[in-house]
């Protein structure tokens, strides 16, 4: 099968849309007069999405250039790091996780240890000052109980 990307994505969309429609069918309705109801719109959206996906499968565009295995791996690492960051922000405070994550992302874009460490630390402190003191948002620099 040539040009598989659009087709694979189309299949994924169809499966997702079917799941979406299935869960829309489970939506509870109230007893009030509501001729359209809460299910019709999600189901219609699911159906249109399936039609679009079928079109994509039938007439796929030219194949995009997917990254090599190494780059895919790098993006995968970046995703994992960002997910960990999401969980770490609260217990560890702002400064440390931000410095570490910024440094890792920086290293991934341009592998220079010096630049990435410096930009990690600089960004973390600079942004903390910007958000905490200039914009007055409630951020905590360090884990609770350190100070």
């Amino acid at each position: 099968m040539t040009r598989p990307s659009d087709r694979i994505f189309g299949l994924v969309v169809i499966l997702a849309a079917l799941a979406y429609i299935a869960s829309a069918l489970q939506v509870q309705a109230s007893f009030l007069s509501d001729p359209v109801g809460p299910k019709a719109f999600p189901i219609a959206v699911g159906i249109v999405a399936i039609l679009c996906a079928v079109t994509m499968i039938a007439r796929p565009d030219a194949e995009p250039e997917w990254p090599a295995l190494r780059s895919t791996l790098a993006i995968g690492i970046a995703i994992v790091v960002l997910v960990i960051y999401a969980y770490a922000l609260k217990p560890l405070g702002f400064l440390i996780p931000t410095a570490v994550v910024a440094a890792i992302l920086s290293y991934q874009i341009s592998p220079s240890p010096k630049v990435s460490v410096l930009s990690g630390i600089g960004l973390s402190i600079g942004l903390f000052v910007l958000f905490r003191f200039v914009l007055g948002l409630s951020l905590f620099g360090f884990p609770r109980g350190w100070f």
């Binding site: 931000t98 994550v101 910024a102 290293y107 874009i109 341009s110 220079s112 930009s119 990690g120 942004l127």
Partner: peptide, 16 residues
């Protein structure tokens, strides 16, 4: 340099 700019943009967005 992108190596500083892009992590910066990410962090700004997340913190925002």
């Amino acid at each position: 340099p992108p190596a500083i700019l892009m992590p910066g943009v990410t962090m700004v967005s997340f913190v925002g």
